[in-house]
């Protein structure tokens, strides 16, 4: 059979019509895939990761603030209950900041979530992502 497009595409090998058609279909598929990746999916992906980063930032920020508030509040409460001012505030505020940073690191996936079962040491090294 004659290939009507042959004159228009001198670079396409015309050894066999089927092979030529396959090659051109492949090229078209690649071009389309490239165009699709370049446009809609990329933008959607970028928008999603923007929202995710915003969410992660908010999470980390509130974790640290909440830890500090919790420690400060408990310290103030302990001082006013037991009359240990200012020792309780100092100790519990520092512990609260540490707890907040631990929460923030967990939110960022850099420290393992707490578990009830024992784990081997090398498993402990890998932080949980996501």
């Amino acid at each position: 059979m004659n290939d009507p497009d042959r004159d228009l595409r001198p670079d396409t090998p015309a050894i066999s019509d089927d092979a030529g058609l396959d090659a051109r279909l492949d090229a078209l598929g690649k071009r389309l895939a490239g165009r699709r990746e370049g446009s809609v999916d990329d933008r959607r992906e970028a928008r999603r990761t923007d929202a995710q980063s915003y969410g992660l930032g908010i999470r980390v920020a509130t974790d640290i603030v909440a830890g500090t508030l919790m420690g400060g509040g408990l310290g103030w409460l302990a001082d006013s209950l037991f009359g240990t001012s200012p020792l309780g505030l100092i100790v519990l505020l520092m512990l609260g900041v540490a707890a907040g940073i631990l929460l923030a690191l967990r939110s960022a996936g850099m420290v393992n979530e707490p578990t009830m079962e024992s784990r081997s040491a090398d498993e402990n090294e890998q932080g949980r992502t996501g």
Binding site: I58, R59, T62, D63, V65, A66, G67, L69, M70, G71, L74, L95, G96, A98, A99, G100, L102, L103, P114
Partner: peptide, 18 residues
């Protein structure tokens, strides 16, 4: 352990406050 307990009790505060 003290920090872990404190961070466990901080979670609802952080959860609500956010």
């Amino acid at each position: 352990v003290l920090i872990e307990i404190l961070s466990f009790f901080t979670r609802p505060l952080s959860h609500a406050m956010r």
